[in-house]
Design a binder for these strands. Structure first.
Lengths: 133, 133
DNA sequence: ATGCACCTTGTAGCAGCTACAAGGTCAAGC
DNA sequence: GCTTGACCTTGTAGCTGCTACAAGGTGCAT
């Protein structure tokens, strides 16, 4: 299949697929006589894997690790497990950060009952007196 | 005060402060005879404001807007209010995304009870069969 | 043969910094 | 007076994960 077809099948832009190849995430495809990339079903499967992992928040480096790990069927899967745990804990701490943020923003909103910016507590509570350019 | 002092006072790297100046976020400072930047208390206040807004997840563009708004004391503060509301809803949707992610990752983890990667459901559920390079 | 959709490469851009390199300045210590 | 070391200056390039060109080649229908 050509790059456009693969792109459509996986919901990825063709440019992103080429980028993955350059980045060593997706193995290079065969070429047709006219130098077009010619992808196999294996490529489709790998790209699906990559996109799903990326959507789950794994970094490119982590995806590379996952790919490398999944190429060794006979190794213990502790490592995969550990990567997932690590990702889970990163997601958890992001959620915690954002929840704290949410709280602060909510309080900011409540603090504004004024009409004019001069009296606005939001600006005030971001910082008392500011430099004017 | 010199850039290092301002950096320490606000928990910002000197390089970041120079970047803010280039980016038009922080007004340029006066210069000493020896061409060192010389910051005022107003700069300190502005930078504090900027860092706090950034920490609350506002983008550089939003910070620019907030700064511009807070320079017009007599305008209605609806706009500030609206920016905060917008940011709040972005944070909310990020939390929702991450929570869904958390759920999926949790299920991934549960699905792995195998010893070998070949039998590991995690790899399997990321994608059935993959291309080998 | 002409149009149009697709493909190729290469390069540059986005956010928001961070990290150099190569050099200038200033205060303290000897 | 001179050196050391911490600071400062500018400029440029790098990071992540794409995305967006530009300039040209290819494939297929009309």
């Amino acid at each position: 299949m050509r790059i456009g077809e693969l792109a459509q099948a996986t919901g990825t832009k063709a440019e992103t697929i080429r980028y993955y190849e350059r980045a060593g995430i997706l193995p290079a495809a065969d070429r047709t006589d006219s130098n077009y990339r010619d992808y196999s079903d294996e490529h489709l499967a790998t790209l699906t894997f990559v996109r799903r992992a990326r959507a789950l928040g794994f970094s490119m480096a982590q995806v590379r690790e996952l790919l490398a790990l999944s190429d060794h069927d006979d190794k213990p899967c502790e490592n995969v497990d550990q990567l997932v745990r690590q990702q889970l804990s990163e997601v958890d701490s992001k959620i915690a950060d954002l929840t704290a943020l949410r709280e602060e923003l909510g309080q900011l909103l409540q603090s504004c009952e004024a009409d004019r910016i001069g009296d606005c507590r939001i600006v005030e509570s971001l910082s008392a007196s500011r430099a004017r350019p």
